[in-house]
Write a protein that binds this DNA or RNA. Structure first.
Length: 580
DNA sequence: GCCGTTTTCGGCCCGACTGTTTTCAGTCG
């Protein structure tokens, strides 16, 4: 069983416990364990036999270790089975409706035997809900709306889309007199590849207690609002036409740091920080850090002073996932994370020779304008016929053109010759060894899916990286296209072999590629892989997406020295596996 | 169910908003 499945079973058990009104702390334990399993870089099923190793994971104790071992053996566990005799699995869907929590699910089940969203719809239509306590007309209307939204399944939004929405809203808020600072918080600030909703924090003279109402009204009047969810003292919640939910909080400047810390999350990070505060006689809220005994103010204006008062170094938002960052901050051993400005080159991009939109020269100019020291032009090879992929002869001709542009740039930027070769179903590359041996940056990627089982798929990739011409493994988990059903491979095995061979693995910076996630990147680093980050740009404007990829690297705790593209041009080439 | 610089018991984060209430429960982040 993979980590994700184990985590899901644990988290579902937590939901069921919650519906059964179980001990809230026991419920939290299950949730914590689920998160610990989900974010673990070790394959839990491989260590499941070894109780000691399981217990070493924070959040996993004796009971949870037994549960995990049981799941490995039987695919489920006693508590879960027991709960499922009392409740239905489809009741978990009900929890996903906005405004629906465990108490309501239990109420509906006990009073009306409602076990699914379909049941709920029927009950609403039949007017059965009205007889229940706390179910007024507004509440029922809210549920109806929630069901509609659920069916449309807005889900999570890609970080670049969310950021665009945030930028527009920020521009609107900025026009209000007295709002001086506006910052996106939440998962956007933490750099997650997708965000569930947008948290925007605003502060300034207009946000003090007796004046804030006007700013609240102004926020609630934001034209693109499709649905106003809540409007309170200092908070406005609404949904945009895209379905994205937005929470705006307007708070006084003295609380800015506390609020930023609070609304950045993650939830588990905050819980741990607050526990730490309590142990030291403080209490932390979105307004301030204060003393428990007399409520006197300790810190609040900046995040730095709050962390410092708790004996911690400031923690970069990307690391705030309760994955050991607090201990590291305490011991002053947080890594200096890689930054966008450390990236000196982008070595995966396409031109109009295949499926790109711009010429070699245009790509080079755009990259030079971004301040890059080097790029590699890596067009497709012949197997991708639909992109007019290059065969041996055209590939060599293309290298000459790249070389020519390199000369034309007169040292403003270095342009490497490159190619993105396709890994065929038997693991062979689709260009000849003689040609590949003449190309600086050879990226081998899978583009076609043959519904092979995991083992065969893995074998195919392994064979491709054994080929001495392969210098970089392109988007190793497959991009969105390949991530769809049926595509699975043994990533740990591939990363281990890549590390042994000195083949670099690529992290594709483009947000919708869903390539190596932060956990995969952490695993790659632990295994000693060389990591290259690239945009796979098909247009000059795509190069901007590098910023999102770097944030994934930061989420994986990668420092500058962990990333190949932070090296100067010659050193970058030298750090790749030696040419065949 | 987990955890330990009040350590094997007794704790476990904090506040806002809504709706249906006349003081609060449920949900959310």
């Amino acid at each position: 069983m993979d980590n994700r499945s184990i985590a899901q079973l644990l988290s579902e058990t937590a939901d069921l416990l919650e519906i059964s009104a179980g001990d809230p702390f026991r419920i939290r334990s299950y949730r914590r364990a689920a998160e610990a399993v989900e974010s673990s870089t070790v394959k839990i099923s491989e260590i499941a036999e070894d109780t000691k190793k399981l217990l070493a994971i924070p959040g996993i104790g004796k009971g949870m270790a037994t549960n995990i071992q049981e799941m490995e053996k039987t695919g489920t566990m006693p508590l879960r089975e027991e709960l499922l005799t009392k409740y239905r699995p489809s009741m978990l869907d009900l929890l996903k409706l906005p405004g629906m929590g465990p108490k309501s699910v239990l109420l509906f089940w006990e009073a009306l035997q409602i076990a699914s969203i379909a049941d709920l719809e029927a009950a609403i239509a039949a007017g059965k809900l009205e007889s229940l306590p706390r179910m007024g007309a507004k509440q029922i209307e809210k549920l109806k709306k929630g069901i509609e939204e659920y069916k449309q399944n807005s889900g999570r939004f890609l970080i670049d889309d969310a950021e665009e929405a945030a930028d527009k809203l920020i521009a609107y808020l900025r026009q209000f007199e007295g709002i001086t600072t506006i910052t996106p918080a939440g998962s956007l600030r933490r750099g997650r590849e997708t965000v569930g909703d947008l948290d925007i924090l605003a502060t300034g003279p207009a946000c003090v207690e007796d004046k804030v109402q006007a700013a609240v009204e102004y926020t609630a009047a934001y034209p693109p609002i499709a649905d106003l969810i809540a409007k309170g003292q200092n908070k406005v919640s609404f949904r945009l036409r895209s379905g994205l939910q937005v929470d705006v909080r307007l708070l006084p400047e003295g609380s800015y740091g506390a609020a930023l810390q609070y609304f950045t999350g993650s939830k588990m990070h905050n819980v741990t920080v607050r526990q730490r505060a309590l142990k030291r006689g403080y209490t932390l809220s979105e307004y301030s850090l204060s003393r428990v005994e007399d409520g006197s103010f300790v810190a609040g204006a900046t995040e730095e002073e709050i962390y410092a008062a708790l004996g911690l170094d400031w923690i970069a938002p990307e690391m705030r996932e309760n994955n050991g960052e607090i201990e590291a901050a305490e011991q002053h051993r947080l890594p200096a994370l890689v930054e966008l400005r450390d990236i000196r080159g982008d070595v995966h991009m396409h031109t109009d020779a295949t499926d790109g939109k711009n010429t070699i020269r245009e790509m080079a100019e755009a990259a030079a304008a971004r301040g890059y020291e080097y790029i590699a032009i890596t067009d497709h090879s012949k197997n991708l016929a639909m992109t007019f992929g290059l065969d041996d002869e055209r590939a060599l001709e293309h290298m000459r053109k790249i070389c020519q542009v390199n000369d034309e740039m007169e040292g403003r930027i270095r342009v490497f010759g490159g190619i993105e070769v396709d890994i065929l179903s038997d693991g062979q590359l689709d260009l000849s060894d003689e040609v590949l041996a003449q190309i600086d940056v050879v990226i081998a990627s899978i583009h076609s899916l043959f519904n092979q089982p995991e083992e065969q798929m893995t074998e195919r990739v392994l064979r491709a990286i054994e080929n001495p011409n392969t210098r970089i493994l392109g988007h190793p988990t497959g991009r969105l296209l390949l991530r769809r059903e049926g595509y699975k491979l043994n990533l740990p095995q591939i990363l281990r072999r890549a590390a042994e061979l000195g083949v670099a693995v690529e992290h594709n910076a483009y947000p919708d590629r869903l390539d190596l996630c932060d956990r995969d990147l952490r695993m790659a680093k632990e295994m000693g892989c060389k990591i290259s980050i690239n945009t796979d740009s098909h247009h000059t404007s795509h190069m901007e997406k590098m910023t999102y990829g770097v944030r994934q690297l930061r989420r994986a705790w990668l420092a500058k020295q962990d990333v190949l593209n932070t090296l100067p041009a010659e050193e970058f080439l030298a750090a790749l596996r030696p040419r065949a």
